[in-house]
Design a protein around this nucleic acid. Structure first.
Length: 485
RNA sequence: GCCCCCAUCGUCUAGAGGCCUAGGACACCAGCCUUUCAAGCUGGAAACAGCGAUUCGAAUUCGCUUGGGGGCACCA
C-alpha cells in the first residue's frame, strides 16, 4: 500500500488539507504501507513563499512523518514536480504522437471570450476544440506567428467513463461533458491532471485518498491512465470539511490554518484526535483515541460521505480533556513558551519554573488552550493588579465592612503559616467572627488577591502567591477602597 | 446553465429492514457538589427534509421533489 499527500505550495495549509494528510497517513500506518509527500509546485504564478515550510511544519507538528519526500528523499525522487518537467514533457510528446493529445494555439483572450459567450447563452463552459483537427498548413501558419501552444488532451467525443470510488461506489461520467483539457501549459509546466497521473503511476501509488472536490476531475484522470496504458490506482474521495456556512473551507473562515491552532495552544494529540473524527468514526461511542488506537482502528470503510463543519467548540472541549490528562511536568513544559510569550511585558523574565509548577495544578482544569492558560495565570505574576475597585464590593458589602474585613485579615495573615489548610483554618472562623458569610468574605479576599471574581480556589491560590504578595495586594485593596471615599 | 456528489438532534456522528418509543459526544438548560470559576456527577430539551413505491414491517431499499455542496481555468 502506497499513498501520498500532494499539496501545492500556494498557501498555508488549513485544517481541511491536513485532515486529508492525516487520513492518508493513518491508512499507510494501519496497513504498514508507505506515506509519500509530494510537492505539486507546477503553478509558478501562485507559488507562495514560506508555504512549503508551513506544510512541512504542520505535518511535523502533528507527527505525520513521511517515508518519502522532501528532506528524506526516496526511490522515486525528486518529489518536487518542478524538478520533473522533462518527465511530463516526454509523456506529452508520446501522447501527441499517439494521437491522444494535440497542440492548441488559441489565445487566452479568445478562450476567455468563448467562455463568456457560452455563459451568456447558458451553455456549459468548455473548450470548443477549434485546434483539435488543424491541418499541417494551419499549424505551420500558427507556428510562424510565434505562438507557443499548449497541449490538450483529445477527449473521446462519446462514451462514458465509469469508475468505482471506495467511498462513493460506482460513479459514471459522460465523455460529452468533458472538454479537451490542458495537459501542458505554454510555460512548459504540466497541469495538475497530467502531473498527478504521471507521478502517481511512477511513484507506484496504490490508493488515492483526496478531498471530494476532486471527484469530478477523476474521469479525466481515468482517461489519461487509459491513454497512457497505466493501471489506475484505487480512489477514495473524502467528504469535505466545511466552514460554519457549510461552504468549502477557505481563508475567510477565520483561523483555519493549522499553525494558528498551534499558536493558540492546542495540543497536537487533540488536533489529530479531533481531525480523525471529522468524516470517520470507530463506533457509536468512542471519541477519545490515542494516535496508536487511531492507527489500529482506521479503515476506509468507516469513512462517511457527508461534509463536516469544523467545530471550534468541540475541538476546545477535546483540547481541555487532553490538557487535563497531562502530568504537571508535561503541562509546565508545554505551557512555558506560552507564558513567556503571553504574559505582560512588565513581568520579569525568565519565568520561574518552580513557581509555574505550583501554579499549573490550579489552572489545569480551567483552561481549554495553553494561550488561555497564560491569561488565567497572569495575576500570579504581575506586580500591580488592575481591577475596578467596585469589584471589591461586588457581593453587596458596605465599604466599612469591607475595610474592616481586609484590615483584620491582614493582621491575621502576618503571622499565619502560608499553607492552604492553615489559611483556611484562620480565615473561615474569621468570616464568622466578622459576621460575614463565607462567600462574602472569601469573594472579597479573592478580588483583593487575584483581581478577579472568578479564580482558582482561594486558599491554594494564596498559598502559591505567598505571604508577601498577599499582604501587599490586601494593602492595595484597602487603598483603593479609601480612594473611593 | 451543464455534470457529479450528498441528505439522522444547532454541530460531529452511530444506525447496513424488525434490537429504534433512533444511541453517543460537543454546545445548551436544570439540579448536585461548592468560597467564585472550572472540573466532576445526575437529569432534560433536541433529529430520521418531503412525497410516493416495495414489504407483514423502513431512518435503513427504489423513484421523484426539495435542499445543500462540489466541479466546469494555460489553479491545484
Amino acid at each position: 500500500m502506497r499513498v501520498r499527500f500532494a499539496p501545492s505550495p500556494t498557501g498555508i495549509p488549513h485544517v481541511g488539507n491536513i485532515r486529508t494528510a492525516l487520513f492518508n497517513w493513518l491508512f499507510a500506518r494501519h496497513h504498514g504501507g508507505s506515506f509519500i509527500l509530494r510537492i505539486e509546485d507546477t503553478d509558478v504564478a501562485r507559488k507562495v513563499k514560506g508555504a512549503l515550510e508551513a506544510i512541512l511544519d504542520s505535518l511535523r507538528w502533528l507527527g505525520l512523518d513521511w517515508d518519502e519526500g522532501p528532506e528524506v528523499g526516496g526511490e522515486y525522487a525528486p518529489y518536487f514536480q518542478s524538478q520533473r518537467l522533462e518527465i511530463y514533457q516526454g509523456v506529452v510528446r508520446r501522447l501527441v504522437e499517439q494521437g491522444d493529445a494535440y497542440l492548441c494555439y488559441c489565445s487566452p483572450e479568445r478562450l476567455e471570450e468563448m467562455r463568456r459567450e457560452q455563459m451568456r447563452r447558458k451553455q456549459p463552459p468548455g473548450y470548443d476544440r477549434r485546434c483539435r483537427e488543424l491541418s499541417e498548413r494551419e499549424k505551420a501558419e500558427l507556428e510562424a506567428k510565434g505562438i507557443t501552444p499548449v497541449v490538450r488532451f483529445k477527449t473521446p467525443l462519446s462514451g462514458a467513463v465509469k469508475f468505482n470510488d471506495l467511498i462513493r461506489g460506482d460513479v459514471v461520467f459522460d465523455c460529452a461533458t468533458i472538454d479537451d483539457f490542458v495537459l501542458l501549459k505554454s510555460d512548459g509546466y504540466p497541469t495538475y491532471h497530467l502531473a498527478n497521473v504521471v507521478d502517481d503511476h511512477r511513484m507506484k501509488i496504490s490508493h488515492v485518498l483526496r478531498a471530494d472536490e476532486w471527484l469530478s476531475s477523476t474521469p479525466r484522470h481515468i482517461l489519461l491512465y487509459d491513454a497512457l496504458g497505466y493501471e489506475p490506482p484505487e480512489f477514495a474521495h473524502l467528504p469535505m470539511i466545511l466552514g460554519n456556512d457549510r461552504a468549502k473551507l477557505s481563508k475567510r473562515h477565520g483561523a483555519t490554518s493549522v499553525m494558528d491552532y498551534q499558536k493558540q495552544g492546542y495540543l497536537p494529540q487533540a488536533m489529530v484526535n479531533f481531525l480523525a473524527l471529522l468524516g470517520w468514526s470507530l463506533d457509536d461511542r468512542t471519541e477519545l483515541m490515542s494516535r496508536e488506537e487511531l492507527i489500529k482502528n482506521f479503515s476506509i470503510e468507516r469513512i462517511g460521505k457527508t461534509g463536516a463543519i469544523f467545530s471550534q467548540e468541540k475541538l476546545g472541549w477535546m483540547n481541555g480533556v487532553y490538557l487535563r490528562q497531562l502530568s504537571i511536568e508535561e503541562l509546565v513544559e508545554h505551557a512555558m513558551p506560552f507564558l513567556e510569550r503571553g504574559l505582560p511585558k512588565s513581568v520579569k523574565r525568565p519565568i520561574s519554573g518552580d513557581y509555574v509548577c505550583q501554579i499549573m495544578p490550579l489552572i489545569q482544569e480551567r483552561m481549554r488552550t495553553l494561550a488561555e492558560g497564560a491569561e488565567l495565570a497572569s495575576f500570579f505574576f504581575v506586580e500591580r493588579l488592575d481591577y475596578e475597585p467596585a469589584l471589591l464590593l461586588e457581593r453587596g458589602l458596605t465599604r466599612e465592612r469591607a475595610l474592616k474585613a481586609l484590615e483584620t485579615a491582614k493582621e491575621r495573615l502576618e503571622s499565619c503559616p502560608f499553607e492552604a489548610s492553615s489559611l483556611e483554618g484562620v480565615l473561615r472562623p474569621l468570616a464568622a467572627e466578622l459576621g460575614l458569610k463565607t462567600g462574602e468574605f472569601f469573594g472579597l479576599l479573592r478580588v483583593a488577591t487575584t483581581g478577579h471574581t472568578a479564580a482558582p480556589p482561594l486558599f491554594e491560590t494564596m498559598a502559591v502567591l505567598g505571604r508577601e504578595r498577599c499582604l501587599k495586594r490586601i494593602e492595595a485593596a484597602l487603598e483603593r477602597l479609601m480612594d473611593r471615599a
